[in-house]
């Protein structure tokens, strides 16, 4: 039995969307915290934390070689890693901030955040589970 032309188009569209779904999910980055953290942080406050003004929070980052890191700062600040490092250098070498601690992988960041009630980090949106809570989604 042949499918009507309109149904064929719908099937094609649904198939294409399903095929693209993992890629779309991969574009989402989650800024995560320990589920015990009760504070609500604005996007501006989160941006300041990741630039190095971390106050009483423990902020975790990834190494510069991580593709996720470059995407994260592009989405959060609209800046390249070179620009972020320049801004952090201004703060770190003038006593106004300390850059986040770099961990080797997103898995290590998630594990560190899950075990510290004052910790904040970011991971690929697909890696979010009940061990962490999402403070901000970056699309």
């Amino acid at each position: 039995m042949r499918m009507p032309a309109s149904q064929s188009w719908i099937a094609l569209l649904v198939g294409a969307l399903l095929a693209a779904a993992p890629a779309l999910a991969a574009e989402r980055i989650a800024v995560i915290a320990n589920p015990a953290l009760e504070d609500t942080l604005s996007r501006e406050e989160i941006a300041r934390l990741f630039l190095g003004r971390n106050g009483s929070y423990r902020v975790y980052d990834l190494p510069d070689r991580s593709p996720l890191k470059a995407r994260f700062y592009e989405k959060l600040l609209g800046k390249t890693l070179a620009q972020v490092n320049a801004e952090r250098a201004r703060l770190a070498f003038s006593g106004r901030g300390t850059p986040p601690e770099e961990l080797i992988s997103a898995k290590a960041v998630k594990s560190a955040v899950a075990s510290d009630p004052r910790a904040i980090g970011y991971i690929d949106g697909r890696e979010v589970d009940e061990t962490v809570k999402v403070l901000l989604w970056l699309e």
């Binding site: 801004e87 250098a89 201004r90 070498f93 003038s94 006593g95």
Partner: peptide, 22 residues
Amino acid sequence: LKLGRLVMPEFMISDYRFVGYA
């Protein structure tokens, strides 16, 4: 509160003027 040797906060970029990368 900071005590010790500090950089004079004269102008806007005084405190990181020697950090060329910044």
